[in-house]
């Protein structure tokens, strides 16, 4: 969409997320730092009386979470005010949108072990007070316990063969019972010789063994190839069978 064109912003089905409707639709989030883009994304300004509000366009080709939302995922479990542990923050592209979504009353703990990506992420976190940047290996969650509190949701996009285990130990440390997880799985990162479907099924089994109960799975076509997102719940409270 060209600079200067008009759009109508509407709430999306997912809390904290919006759609900008014009000649084309775009997924957008409410910019916590009006006037600034994080990675060159487009912005939309709204004048509401005196206060200026700004939204940032969220590109599904650059963010798996956005791809999942446009793909119709049922739940992302990160409404405004919630606390999210984000594993594999990279340079903070998606993290910045999660920061917009959970808003000033929420928190994003963003873990990334590469110092190079981490530097960009630190710059994003400087302007966004609800991001707590953690430059550590997510395989050793005890190393960042001083910075952490319990969270409502764990999001993981570390693209590692042992991702299920990484999520499990982080959940054991920091995810509240009945909390949720959202994991992006890149099939060839786990096993480039097997069929993607078989890889996804294998990962789901691993999660189940760790009391991470998958509730939903979807592929990210047409935005990513051989990628799936799995959403589920951690140690759900036992159902009362007596009733």
């Amino acid at each position: 969409m060209k600079g200067g064109s008009n759009v109508v912003i509407e709430p999306h089905r997912h809390p904290g997320v919006f759609i900008a409707r014009g000649k084309e639709d775009a997924l957008v989030t409410l910019n916590m730092v009006p006037g600034e883009a994080v990675y060159g994304e487009k912005r939309i300004s709204v004048e509401e009386g005196e206060n200026k509000i700004e939204y940032r366009v969220w590109n599904p080709f650059r963010s798996k979470l956005a791809a999942a939302i446009l793909g119709g995922v049922d739940q992302i479990h990160m409404p405004p005010g919630s606390k999210v542990l984000y594993l594999g923050a990279a340079s903070g592209t998606t993290v910045s949108h999660v920061s917009d979504i959970v808003g000033p009353e929420g928190l994003v703990y963003a873990v990334e072990f590469s110092h190079r990506s981490g530097r960009d992420m630190l710059n994003v976190a400087k302007k966004r007070t609800n991001i707590i940047p953690i430059i550590e290996d997510a395989r050793h969650p005890h190393k960042y316990r001083m910075l952490m509190g319990m969270v409502d949701t764990v999001f993981a996009d570390v693209a590692q063969p042992d991702q299920a285990r990484i999520v499990a130990i982080n959940a054991q440390h920091y995810l509240k019972n009945g909390g949720h997880f959202v994991i992006s799985i890149k099939a060839n990162c786990i096993d480039s010789t097997a069929q993607p479907e078989a890889v996804f099924a294998g990962e789901v089994k691993k999660l189940q063994a760790e009391r991470l109960k998958p509730q939903e799975q979807l592929t990210l076509e047409p935005y990513e190839r051989d990628h799936a997102v799995v959403v589920g719940v951690y140690r759900p409270p036992a159902k009362n069978k007596g009733e």
Binding site: M1, K2, G3, G4, S5, N6, V7, V8, I9, E10, P11, A20, A37, G40, K42, R43, I44, S45, V46, E48, I53, E54, Y55
Partner: peptide, 22 residues
């Protein structure tokens, strides 16, 4: 018709090509 909505405008970005602006 939506009940809750806002009317907005795409912001010009200094890095945009001129063709990317109205």
């Amino acid at each position: 018709l939506p009940k809750y909505f806002q009317v907005g405008k795409y912001v010009d970005s200094p890095t945009d090509f001129y063709s990317a602006r109205l």
